[in-house]
Design a protein around this nucleic acid. Structure first.
Lengths: 111, 111
DNA sequence: CTCACATACTACGGTTGACGTTATATGGTG
DNA sequence: CACCATATAACGTCAACCGTAGTATGTGAG
């Protein structure tokens, strides 16, 4: 699972959101590092719904514009938790390996 | 950056390795979850070398077989550390959001 | 001797997922 | 009227990963 997909699931974990709300939430959660484009978002939403990770919560018509709210399914929540654990493990492995790096001086010159 | 690429950089962080050694190291580091195929590995190695993340350390001819050792560059080490931090942040965000999940009963039935 | 297996790299084709852009539709602002 | 923010849909493109097969050598089993 890639970062945009992971963050979309993360955004939907706390409460149902419509597409545009997901874009804003993901920007927040990633401290501005990830800004979803429509092509990425709606493609991912369709895919995740097909996979049963998310479900349509409800649809609202606000001033002629359709708002489709999605919510995280139980399957999606379980998968997200697993992925989060995996991310933690990978990050820890990288930091551990970097610590073994020869010449890893942390800015010191060998003093 | 995707998981296989991240783990290849992680494998090379502690010491130079040749391709096959990377496959074994990644299997170890990921507790068997990620088994790199040649197509994934050598494609990634070429790409990472082009990007300056890794460098050819040395080449050895062992019993007619070529062994090409790669090492992580300074750029690669910095990038890997950044990615590790990002992974930790994303994992923490997901877990935090999951904690806010309505009906997040942790197996309880509401008693 | 032959076959299978581990080591080690190369080459090719296919699929997925993210990306960028454009189009549609409406209300508010200048 | 033009422009911007909201909100979704529908393209085409590209990067990255995946699987398989091929080349080559040494070792151990049958």
């Amino acid at each position: 699972m890639q970062e945009p997909t992971f963050l979309i699931l993360t955004a939907l974990a706390a409460q149902p959101l419509h597409g545009y709300g997901v874009i804003q939430s993901v920007t927040d959660l990633s401290a501005g590092d990830v800004k979803l484009r429509p092509g990425t978002l709606y493609g991912a939403l369709d895919r995740l719904a097909e996979q049963g990770m998310i479900e349509v919560d409800r649809e609202e018509a606000i001033e002629g514009r359709l708002r489709r709210y999605y919510r995280l399914s139980e399957t999606g929540a379980t998968t997200l938790q697993e992925q989060a654990t995996r991310l933690h493990r990978n990050a820890a492995a990288a930091e551990s390996q970097l610590g073994k790096r020869p010449g890893f001086t942390l800015g010191l010159t060998g003093a």
